[in-house]
Deep mutational scan, measured.
Amino acid sequence: MKVIFLKDVKGKGKKGEIKNVADGYANNFLFKQGLAIEATPANLKALE
């Protein structure tokens, strides 16, 4: 799953980066902790 990092995550990505991560990692950790959002077309456009 492609995500946009909202904060730096050690060993995974930095704020503003768009990366592929495992679905479970994104859903169970990144999204719940507010560290990333899904890289949907709307979210990508808002990032610009």
Rank of each mutant, 00 (worst) to 15 (best):
Met1Lys: 10
Met1Pro: 05
Met1Ala: 04
Met1Asp: 03
Met1Tyr: 08
Lys2Tyr: 14
Val3Asp: 00
Val3Leu: 03
Val3Thr: 00
Val3Tyr: 00
Ile4Lys: 00
Ile4Leu: 10
Ile4Trp: 02
Phe5His: 00
Phe5Tyr: 07
Phe5Met: 04
Phe5Trp: 02
Phe5Thr: 00
Phe5Leu: 08
Phe5Gly: 01
Leu6Asn: 03
Leu6Glu: 01
Leu6Met: 08
Leu6Val: 07
Leu6Ser: 01
Lys7His: 12
Lys7Pro: 00
Lys7Glu: 11
Asp8Glu: 09
Val9Ile: 08
Val9Pro: 01
Val9Gln: 02
Val9Gly: 00
Lys10Leu: 13
Gly11Arg: 05
Lys12Val: 15
Lys12Ile: 15
Lys12Arg: 13
Lys12Trp: 15
Gly13Met: 02
Gly13Pro: 01
Lys14Trp: 08
Lys14Glu: 07
Lys14Pro: 01
Lys15Trp: 05
Lys15Ala: 12
Gly16Thr: 01
Gly16Glu: 01
Gly16Ile: 00
Gly16Met: 06
Glu17Thr: 06
Glu17Asp: 11
Glu17Phe: 02
Glu17His: 04
Ile18Ser: 02
Ile18Asp: 01
Ile18Asn: 02
Ile18Glu: 01
Ile18Gly: 02
Ile18Leu: 07
Ile18Trp: 02
Lys19Asn: 05
Lys19Met: 12
Lys19Thr: 08
Lys19Asp: 04
Lys19Gly: 08
Lys19Leu: 11
Lys19Arg: 11
Asn20His: 14
Asn20Ile: 15
Val21Gly: 02
Ala22Glu: 14
Ala22Val: 08
Ala22Trp: 09
Ala22Ser: 14
Ala22Thr: 13
Ala22Leu: 09
Asp23Lys: 15
Asp23Asn: 14
Asp23Val: 15
Asp23Ala: 15
Asp23Gln: 15
Asp23Ser: 15
Asp23Pro: 15
Gly24Trp: 15
Gly24Pro: 09
Gly24Cys: 11
Gly24Glu: 15
Tyr25Leu: 09
Tyr25Arg: 05
Tyr25Val: 09
Tyr25Ala: 04
Tyr25Met: 07
Tyr25Gln: 05
Tyr25His: 03
Ala26Pro: 04
Ala26Tyr: 12
Asn27Pro: 06
Asn27Gly: 07
Asn28Phe: 10
Phe29Pro: 03
Phe29Leu: 07
Phe29Ser: 06
Phe29Asp: 06
Leu30Tyr: 04
Leu30Phe: 02
Leu30Met: 03
Phe31Pro: 04
Phe31Cys: 04
Phe31Ser: 00
Lys32Trp: 07
Lys32Phe: 08
Lys32Leu: 09
Lys32Ser: 12
Gln33Leu: 15
Gln33Ser: 09
Gln33Trp: 15
Gln33Thr: 09
Gln33Lys: 13
Gly34Arg: 06
Gly34Asp: 06
Gly34His: 10
Gly34Pro: 00
Gly34Ala: 06
Leu35Met: 09
Leu35Lys: 04
Leu35His: 05
Leu35Gly: 00
Leu35Asp: 04
Ala36Thr: 00
Ala36Trp: 03
Ala36Cys: 03
Ile37Cys: 08
Ile37Met: 11
Ile37Ser: 03
Ile37Glu: 03
Ile37His: 04
Glu38Val: 08
Glu38Ser: 08
Glu38Ala: 11
Glu38Asn: 04
Ala39Cys: 08
Ala39Leu: 07
Thr40Met: 02
Thr40Asp: 06
Thr40Gly: 05
Thr40Glu: 04
Pro41Val: 11
Pro41Ser: 11
Ala42Phe: 09
Ala42Thr: 10
Ala42Arg: 08
Ala42Asp: 13
Ala42Pro: 07
Ala42Gly: 11
Ala42Ser: 10
Ala42Asn: 10
Ala42Lys: 09
Asn43Thr: 09
Asn43Gln: 07
Leu44Pro: 01
Leu44Cys: 08
Leu44Arg: 06
Leu44Ser: 05
Leu44Met: 09
Lys45Asp: 07
Ala46Met: 13
Ala46Val: 10
Ala46Leu: 15
Leu47Ser: 07
Leu47Phe: 14
Leu47Met: 11
Leu47Ile: 12
Leu47Arg: 05
Leu47Asn: 09
Leu47Pro: 06
Glu48Ile: 13
Glu48His: 13
Glu48Gln: 13
Glu48Gly: 12
Glu48Ser: 12
